[in-house]
Each structure stands twice: as C-alpha cells, then as structure tokens.
Design a protein around this nucleic acid. Structure first.
Lengths: 270, 270
DNA sequence: CCCAGTTTTTTGTCTATACATAATTGCAAG
DNA sequence: CTTGCAATTATGTATAGACAAAAAACTGGG
C-alpha cells in the first residue's frame, strides 16, 4: 500500500505513471523495468535511464528509484557501476536452477494422500565407505533408516538415510511413525551446507523389490548430504523409478520459480 | 568505504561495533545476523531484536537497519511481520537448488579440453509429439541437431536439440562447427522461461552407440525447454552415462552456491 | 468467558539532504 | 599522440523525520 506518504510535497506531481493498487512505488518501478527487460524491449547491454531521470518520470525521490534499482541489481537482472550507470545484465545459463521438492509438502499442496512406510530402522556403527564420504570418524554411531514414500497408493520413491547421532541425539528416541525422517530433521535441525548428486543406476534385486520396478530398470538417484558448519548431519539417498516419475522444474532468469513433481506421462507446460 | 557520512551527528557514538574494512554498515549488520543464523545461535523461529534495538546497538538510523533486514527478508533468511517483528525463517527443502552446468564453460574453467561432434543436422517439419510438448503448430519448420560433448577424450553427454526456426531464423545459416549449438543460442537469444525435466532411462541401441555405453545401461536424461515470452525457442535433451558422471551441486540456504560437474568416482566434499 | 472496538507497537515506505566514491571525460603539459 | 591531473557525474551510503498499515494487546460490555 503506502499512498504518497508525505503531506503536500509532491511539488512536481509530474506525469506520475498510474500505479497498480496495493503496491509500493519502488515495487512499481521494479516491475516496470523487469517487464521491459523480460519482454526484450530493453535487451542485454541496454543502458537504462539514470536515477535522476527516473525520479522525474515517476515524480519521486532518488532514494525510491535507488531502492528499486538496487533490488534488481541484487536479483542479478541489471548491473550497476558508478558514473557509468545501470545496464541490463546478460542472461546466464548458470542461473538456470532446479529445485528439489519435499514429498509430504508437495503431496499436501496438491491434495494427494501421502503415506510413508518405515522398512528399516537401526542404530549401528558407520561403515568405512560412508565414513569417507561424510567425513565422520570410523566407529561413529549413526541411525540407518530405509523409508518408502507412497503418494495416492503409488510408490514415488525409496529412501535410505544415515543420520549422525552425535549431531542429532534426539533421533535415537524417535520412531518416525508419524512423520518421515526427512521432514522431522528439517523442522528441527538447521543446516548450513548441502551437496546434491544426481545420477542414474540400474536397479539391483533389492532396489527393484522395494521400488516396485523390474530388475535392471533405470532409476533416478538423488543423493543429498547436509552439514551444519562442518559437522555432518545426514545423508539421504532417494531412488525414483526412471519412468513415469520425473523431477521437474520451471523457472525464469529472475529466479522466482514455480515447481512441482511430475507424475505419469509427459505433458506440455501446464 | 562509507565512513559515517554526516558531519557530527553521531551523538550517541554508542558502542559502534567494530566494522570490517571496506564494508558498508548495512552490510555489516547483514553479515552479523547471517552469521548468527547460520551458526545456529539464532535458530529457526527465533525473534530477532527490533529495528529500534539494533539502531541503538549499532548507533545508526533505522533506515540502515531496515535496509539490512529487508535484504535478509528478500533473501528468504528471515520473515518479517508488522507489529510481530522479524523471526528466523525455517530452512526449507524448497530452497535446495541444483544448478545446471554448461559444458564448454565448465571445461574451460577447469582447464580441460572440450570438443563437440556434430552427428546430425537437418531442417525438417516438427513431428506431432514434439509439437504438443512445445506448443508449436504442426508443420512448423525446426532445426534438428544431434551433438556429442567430449571432455578430455571422454564422452560426457549426447544431446538432441530442436530449435524453432520461426523464432531463431539465423540458425538456418549456421553450421555449429566452432561452437556447440547450446552456447550459440545462449549468446544470441534471451529467454524468459524454462522448464527442466530430469529422469532416468535405459539406453536403447542407438543411444548406447552414441554415448558409448552398454545397451540397457541406466542413463540420466535432462530435458530443457526454453521460451521467450510464450514463444517457444528450443528443446534440448541431454543424456549422460549414469555411472561415472553425475550432476552435482553444493549450496547453502543463503543461496550462493558453488558448482561443478563431477566426473569419475564419488568423492567426499571437494 | 467471549467478542467487539480501541490503543499501541512495529515494520513499510517515502522525502529531502549530505557526503563518499568510482569512473569517465576533458584539458593541458610533455 | 600520449600521459597525468582535475573536473564532472552517477551511484553508494547514511541521516532524521513523517505518515501508513498491520497486527498484537488491551479494554469493556454482554
């Protein structure tokens, strides 16, 4: 909201471009510019008007224009340099980004029925290979859990997880009957670093059985390791059937994506 | 930069926490808070000090504190509500993000030798299935290209691409001998929307031959469709060998990730 | 005890001004 | 024609003051 806040000082009044209802002036400016860039009207490299020009155009103070432009700069859409002015930034492939979804949340959002089966749960000493991957000392005690994620009766994924009990001792006394372990952790433990690996593997006999696919079928594997300031928290390995289930992401270079987990056959953009 | 800007008005002078050299005050405040959150000192849900408290603590104006907090809010690290104050946001799985790498750029950055083989290149009418996926009219003319990406003599990926010639007519006269088609497009055509799909498939005879893997081996597939304001630009389908090559991403909830394409065997964090 | 209306607190936005800093531009000396 | 210095200019940061709006907290009546 914020209608012009100060008594009578709009001395210029100016052209005062029409403003969308319920939107601050700096937001309006931001949207205008964003639109000009995204539509191609202002191509990469284009030098945008100086702050003092915009403040005339919108009949506002420089600080307001500055706030809009600073935000766009932080967003990576424009680049600013003293004396030289602001120019539209070149779109970069690196900004292309894929977001990873959480099952329970995703299912709930789309009104589907979510269920998880706890297939295994035991406390054990870490094995050598995992110790190396995670940076834990050999002999550390970890919680090992195997979970199956089921949405609307269909097996969406099979998950194997290791939790560092030194970092998350509360996990010892949890059965994870009500809440999948990933969600539980997320609500409790803040993380500072994570690492994702995505790969494809042929299902071995055990995985095929647990995922409900044929032996040797291609499966998508998503491995995530999470740290809290150099101390290892957890490693999750998620397996998805390769066919029928895919990780999908939609996004734009401005970086405010809308996401979902696609199920079933391929479809065009919703 | 930016030593206290106004003549003598630091009437309080206050404790004036020591400031890192070459950093603005609002940046310092931001970093302080960010650090407190990331270290766990301020856990999710923690209500941070009010603006007026912080302005006492740092001996500055409210606008300065406000700028810092607004930035953190835009970044998604805190949530702000009138009257209620600001609280540390819960880390969300949704913020976990995977960045897609560009071959040529990635190879160059790590000093490796990149090469691409143009296996097929022809102009044809779009087929029915692709027309549906992309929203193009049946009968539209597209460029179809098949490329192999080779880094240091190893086949990293096989790519099949379709380019909408109505949107990118220059592509008709390009041989793409010097530059892979993806890089060429990126430099030329700005995009506004994209969609990624990641899946796993078993290699059929042709894919196995072109990727240099065994028949039926699990392969990672990355499909990317790009639009410029509702007009379809291009669809790329990238196939990676499932073993030995993985998409990998490291990041933190603040959202400034460092990325790479992992090759060979699994390794711990760099 | 609950519900409505009023008060108070906190963030949101904006203005006007001031000085700092980086970078380009122009000018003048070599 | 080049080099170096000064002037100019756009952005960067900060201040103090003002009003707006949302929401929690309080208050009084039923």
């Amino acid at each position: 909201m914020a209608s012009p806040a100060v008594k009578a000082s709009t001395k210029k009044a100016a052209v005062a471009a029409p403003r969308a209802r319920g939107q601050s002036l700096n937001q309006t400016i931001r949207n205008d510019i964003e639109h000009k860039i995204m539509s191609g009207e202002w191509p990469p490299g284009f030098r945008l008007p100086f702050e003092h020009e915009m403040m005339e155009q919108y009949g506002c103070s420089r600080m307001t224009v500055n706030k809009a432009l600073s935000a766009l700069s932080a967003q990576g859409l424009i680049m600013r340099r003293r004396r030289a002015g602001s120019v539209v930034a070149a779109p970069s492939a690196d900004r292309a980004v894929l977001q990873i979804v959480d099952f329970a949340a995703e299912a709930q959002r789309s009104g589907k029925l979510y269920r998880h089966d706890m297939l295994e749960r035991r406390i054990e000493e870490i094995d050598a290979a995992t110790a190396r991957r995670t940076g834990l000392k050999p002999g550390s005690r970890v919680l090992y859990a195997a979970t199956r994620h089921v949405v609307d009766g269909v097996i969406e994924a099979y998950e194997e997880r290791i939790v560092n009990l030194a970092a998350v001792p509360q996990a010892k006394r949890e059965s994870f009957a009500d809440m999948p372990i990933g969600t539980w952790l997320l609500q409790r433990v803040p993380w500072s670093d994570a690492e994702h690996i995505i790969g494809a593997i042929n299902a071995d006999a055990r995985l095929a059985r647990r995922l409900g696919v044929e032996r040797n079928a291609a499966c998508l594997m998503l491995e995530r390791r999470t740290w809290q300031n150099t101390v290892f928290l957890t490693e999750a390995r998620l397996y998805y059937p390769g066919t029928g289930h895919r990780l999908i992401g939609r996004f734009s270079p401005t970086g405010n994506p809308a996401f979902g987990l696609a199920t079933g056959t391929d479809r065009g953009r919703s």
